[in-house]
Design a protein around this nucleic acid. Structure first.
Lengths: 196, 196
DNA sequence: AAGAATTTTCGACTCTCAGTCGAAAATTTC
DNA sequence: GAAATTTTCGACTGAGAGTCGAAAATTCTT
């Protein structure tokens, strides 16, 4: 038998994959333990509840994604590059979004919502710092940075999380960035490439 | 015994109240039928599933709220007044938001999310028309109206649906409206009063 | 008005699923 | 190597969503 922490990580990995593929609501604890080849009691020895498992899975995901983002933040790069880098690293990995596309759509409301909240919460401070730097160097010009950054993040998750966006959405989104952060027209065009 | 449609409305009313007070997830079908004094089978004679009941309850809510909004849309009023009117009529009623405050917070994610989506979906076309009128009369100046309106709605639900907003949020929100719709600075200040 | 057809209601039953618990097995400590 | 601690086991409970066939009420026919 495994020693504690190892086993927990293993379960977290399994839960992560299953939540991703089949959705949180469509994955039962029994599914997880079967996949892991353990008994009910063992599962509940490591997790207080199914929901706590979700919480930890999300924490894991976000932490991983935040890791790279923080690196970039510290680097010595021009503001647009930093923004580009942070956004791409926070973006769902191919693994996450491509698994059968089954991911964030049908009825994964709960998981989706929790990820969204946590993502906003952790990304706002990071991006705010970059925007501050952007203000120093004249790229941006505005006050109440965290509030503005949050708005842009909320918009972007509405637009891009579910794949439902058109060319017009992109145009307006870029315009929104420039207007809300006080950048010169056209300077945020590079964002378009990040969306692809 | 009641005749069909009447009974269904009655059940819808009961479900509506219970979902509001105790939340969708914390209300069992058994709770509903007990309150209504009917048997399980009768409930399922009228609804395919619990989720369909939620769907219909939300449809009912939104329809009611949209009613008043449409009236205002048709009226012959200055743009700011129309916006104010529509927003207030789409806003959760005191009944909805005040019931023990238990409403939209703890773990009503599913109901909250469904309401949000449906609300955005129905409000975008309405407000877009007003903005168009605002462009004719010079209040606004922009293209891609529905996209912009949607963004503002999404922001506002993030900000106000859960009561978590500060003075700065309001300032930035108003600024966002003006910038995104191309209104002159200060012209949207009246929105502040709608939030209170 | 009586029977037939239809609508509405009933409630016991099934199935799935999250979570519990006491005891067994493995591991660590002394 | 015995006692203490950690980890695992799986049968069991309880809750809740949804099913189903049959009874009761209502409406339709003639």
């Amino acid at each position: 038998m495994k020693k504690g922490e190892k086993r927990k990580q293993e379960l977290l990995q399994i839960a992560y994959k299953m939540f991703l593929i089949r959705g949180y609501e469509n994955t039962s604890v029994d599914d997880i333990i079967e996949e892991a080849g353990i008994a009910k009691g063992t599962y509940y020895y490591y997790f207080k509840s199914k929901e706590q498992t979700l919480e930890e899975v999300i924490g894991m995901m976000i932490e991983q994604e935040t890791e790279a983002a923080k690196q970039i933040l510290e680097a010595d790069l021009p503001v647009p590059q930093k923004i580009a880098g942070i956004i791409s690293s926070l973006r769902p990995t191919r693994e996450e979004s491509s698994i059968e596309g089954a991911l964030m759509q049908p009825e994964n409301i709960i998981m989706h919502d929790k990820i969204r909240r946590k993502l906003v919460e952790t990304a706002v401070p990071l991006l705010s710092k970059v925007v501050e730097q952007g203000i120093s160097d004249g790229t941006f010009s505005c006050s109440n940075i965290p509030q503005r950054v949050r708005m842009l993040l909320v918009i972007s998750s509405d637009l891009f999380d579910e794949g439902r966006y058109t060319e017009e959405d992109i145009i307006v989104f870029i315009d929104a960035i420039e207007k809300l952060l006080g950048a010169k027209p056209g300077t945020m065009e590079f964002v378009r490439d990040l969306i692809q």
